[in-house]
Design a protein around this nucleic acid. Structure first.
Lengths: 194, 194, 194, 194
DNA sequence: AATGAATGAGATTTCATTCAT
DNA sequence: TATGAATGAAATCTCATTCAT
């Protein structure tokens, strides 16, 4: 959230809240301004366009994801623990900020604009790359099976993570994501461990 | 596509095409009618509302998915082969009809309407259930490891499938989905086989 | 209902039913045809336009009103009895066919078209004229006060009748129109009798 | 007209003018905006929906009716004089603002929406109640006959008033409403006075 | 006598954005 | 930094009516 003024941060936060509540489709300038208690034109003092707000949201998620990975990385544990921490950190983030899922999984919506879809792809790439790195470390230490490439394993782990989050959202958040995610992790661990 | 008139089928097909090209958000009555060479009100002779068109699209995918699963099911092979067929059938369907992905993965967009999101959830459920059944069969024949529940395995397999499709879409269809999907399947198979 | 084919009569009857149920504003060709189990263009085989249907309805009410007045007229009783019969006949007609009120009191809606508003005015005139004639007879027989012109008395009697019907409609037909109308008549009678 | 911004008042006034000219049915957002020299969406900065404009019009009439009755009430004269003032005030209001009649007598049109028809019924009730109160006072002072209830008398007086206004409207405002109304009042007075 | 298909005109409403103040 | 007022573009939908069959 560096490089953003206080008002910009407010706008970003309100937007995230609105996305969580009503979905990206119902994120309108009118809604944002109403929630902030200001008028619509006032928004344009802080962001040139609605696109810029969405980009700011993505950049916010990007940097917070990056920071989390950074912390995981420097935690100094074994590769498999890092994967686990990353898995659980994601679960926690989604559970705490459902908007994150609404935003990250909105490829469809961002399809319209190359910059938006590019950012979403970038965030996904960062995660996949980090995951790959952790897997590689674990594979080098013979903790994880070596007969499958780290890219494929990343895909499988992240895919499962994403799908459980999607089911959670479709179910209207009706189950405990972190608990069910923990079960899922146990299964994944069994599958990939040596 | 039973129960639909010819014109309705045309509308559904054009809509699917438009969704594939421009995303669901840009699927408008105007676009549909323009593509059919008729005026907007003419659409309303065939569908009562736009929502009904979307529901028809989902019902089309639902029945075609159901039919594909039916065929897979009665193929009379081993459980693991059925999983494989299902996996490849999905890949092929997505590769052939990119709109399918655009529609099926649009949970976000369908969030607005309970009937729509319900249908999407139903389609997902059908697939998960079929996958679970095939896995169970394979587990009973000791072809697939038994230390992980069929539900978890379904989640992992379908999650990986979905994610590779999503990456393909985000990459602007820049790689050969069926080929890369085949590689992914090999990895999954290694992971789950006994 | 002379001069109308069977199908035309059906259309008129359905239209009256629809007006009673939903108001004139929601009387559409689509609604009429749906209620008859035919298509919209079929209506145009029987009436040139929607306007003609409305005119037919008015002409129907006009002739049935005329016939009722005819019967009253030739009932051969005293003037005051005739007024009474006319008053009660109207009450009964409205109670039995709420559409009648919906149509007759729709001056606003008919304002658009001179022919329609002309017909409504004509029906009103017929009634006022008949009422005046009855009053005149009663005044000549000294049954009704002579210090007020028959036109004014008509206006007062018909006005009260219309208003009680309007209140009945606004109340969603929540009281017994004929009973309350009878009470009203008693009061009117007291006022005008010698 | 309190609680309304200047622009809102303008919209209300223009709407009333349009209703008087063309009837409620032709009161469209487009017409209103065209008359104000602005675009259609601009209207929505001032009223949330067309329904709200209609409600505003009714609330305007309601409060102006209420104020007029208030003044009549506190005029401190005899009951019969109050009835007379109320009668003439109504005539004058209708003569000056034909739209008032178009709106007030549009029960049919407002039938669609409970809030609208409720407001129309409320305005009618206010008037009937005031009239009843004045009649009661006159009856207590033996100025008006006591053998008929105040409710019935109200109905008769208001009914006559409404009908003469309706005839005036149907005749295309072709006679002097206030003059003919004054004659009518003379007759009514004769009827009800002791 | 009726239908299937379609249309022109128009209604209400939403949305991102602009501009003078 | 913010507001009041407004706009162009577009979306969904309704309605009376037409026309070929």
């Amino acid at each position: 959230m560096i490089n953003f003024t206080d008002r910009q941060k407010e706008i970003i936060e309100v937007s995230i809240k609105l996305i969580a509540e009503k979905g990206i489709q119902r994120l309108t300038i009118k809604n944002i301004s109403k929630n902030l208690g200001i008028t619509e034109p006032a928004i344009y003092r802080h962001f040139e366009s609605k696109l810029d707000i969405l980009l700011a949201i993505l950049s916010y998620f990007k940097s917070s994801t990056g920071a989390a990975l950074e912390r995981t990385h420097s935690a100094g544990r074994s590769g498999i623990e890092k994967i686990e921490i990353m898995f659980f950190t994601h679960l926690k983030q989604f559970a705490e900020k459902p908007a994150l899922a609404a935003v990250i999984f909105s490829e469809e919506i961002f399809q319209n604009d190359k910059r938006l879809s590019g950012q979403v792809a970038a965030i996904m790439k960062i995660n996949m790359k980090a995951m790959s790195t952790f897997i590689k470390q674990a594979q080098q230490n013979d903790k994880i099976r070596n007969d499958i490439t780290k890219e494929q394993l990343s895909l499988i782990i992240m895919g499962a993570l994403r799908l459980i989050v999607t089911k959670w959202r479709l179910s209207d958040y009706s189950f405990d994501l972190e608990k069910r995610g923990a079960d899922l992790w146990k299964s994944i661990k069994k599958l990939i461990e040596n």
